[in-house]
Write a protein that binds this DNA or RNA. Structure first.
Lengths: 188, 188
DNA sequence: AGAAAGATTTACCCTATGATAAAAAATGAT
DNA sequence: ATCATTTTTTATCATAGGGTAAATCTTTCT
């Protein structure tokens, strides 16, 4: 959910684990696995070592709406559940076979106390995400679906080519049919 | 920008200042004052002691778009500029005569090192904001403008009654005319 | 390969919202 | 109180995107 490559690298994470002698579990999931479901407590701040994860929820009509994608070296969690202990409404699905690091709340509390610089780093991570979400709201409010689609391909070509159009459509807040129409218009 | 009443009270802030013997400036602004403008560096994490602040930006056509409101006991800043030192695109305007506490990056760094529990508190603050922004994206993607308007009145009646409809409209991502139409429909 | 299931596109009509313009109402200044 | 300015409403027309349904195209499984 939070893109971290700018601040936290895989090596950084491993070094951190090493420093603390923490036991941090990892998990392998198969393509198609939904390893977090709405209603289930989200116990981890997942770090994606490899693969591609889709976060989604259900709207009032029961349709899946994609909320976020996370690939290598990104983090993903249900902030509502993981940090605030509220009911979790998010689902996490592996779009490819993936490997994840399972960071607990306790790990974060320990790192916060023991590792100099961790808090500043983690703060940056959260702020980075706030900025991304803010930009997304701004984008929806001021840009056409077509423009947002083009921007998405430009900024995340990597993710775009590894997922279905239906996921892209709901991420953009439009129907599959609408996206198809936009794509047709762009070709000609 | 960040609603904090749940976690950080005015007394908490003062106690914190007291604990550290920090010199934290405050500032009084008059209704209508735009005290942060796009392009200007945002040096403060503003804490609203009293009043009402509107955060807005300009879309490509030069129209003002309201991004956020902050009233008593809420925080507001341009995360992009304050934390990440990027170009600031946000403007802050006082919708009423207001009083603000000016918290610097340095204050936060000091508090982070010196005050036990500060990091955990501040993390909650940021996460709270992430959750709010996420909900906003979800709302835009799955709810009608009418529903979002009603929700806004319900959740922030306080803010709603102290600001112009044009600000509400752009906050909701619709035109003033559209909002007017919705309001008319709701009356009948 | 062939069948079945799933994903995407196309076509049709419909609705919410946008754009422009003008009228009405509210606010503020002298 | 009056006039000027700003805000909100109303009206008309245009358009992006939604909903339903069906047609292709693609993938997966046997």
């Amino acid at each position: 959910m939070v893109r971290t490559d700018k601040y936290i690298t895989l090596e950084g994470i491993y070094k951190w684990i090493d420093t603390l002698n923490l036991e941090i579990d990892s998990m392998e999931v198969k393509k198609g696995d939904v390893f977090l479901k709405q209603g289930q407590k989200c116990d981890y701040f997942y770090f994606v070592i490899d693969g591609l994860i889709r976060m989604y929820y259900y709207d009032l009509d029961g349709n899946e709406v994609t909320h976020w994608f996370s690939s290598q070296n990104m983090m993903v969690t249900s902030p509502d559940s993981f940090f605030q202990k509220n009911e979790n409404i998010l689902n996490l699905e592996a779009l490819e076979d993936s490997k994840l690091l399972l960071i607990t709340y306790e790990h974060i509390e320990i790192a916060s106390k023991e590792i100099p610089g961790f808090n500043s780093l983690f703060r940056k991570l959260l702020v980075d995400f706030i900025v991304k979400m803010s930009r997304r709201v701004m984008g929806i409010h001021t840009q056409s679906a077509e423009y947002r689609y083009l921007k998405l391909i430009e900024q995340y070509p990597n993710i775009f080519h590894r997922t279905k159009l239906s996921h892209i459509a709901s991420y953009l807040g439009i129907t599959i049919q609408s996206l198809s129409r936009i794509r047709k218009k762009l070709i000609s």
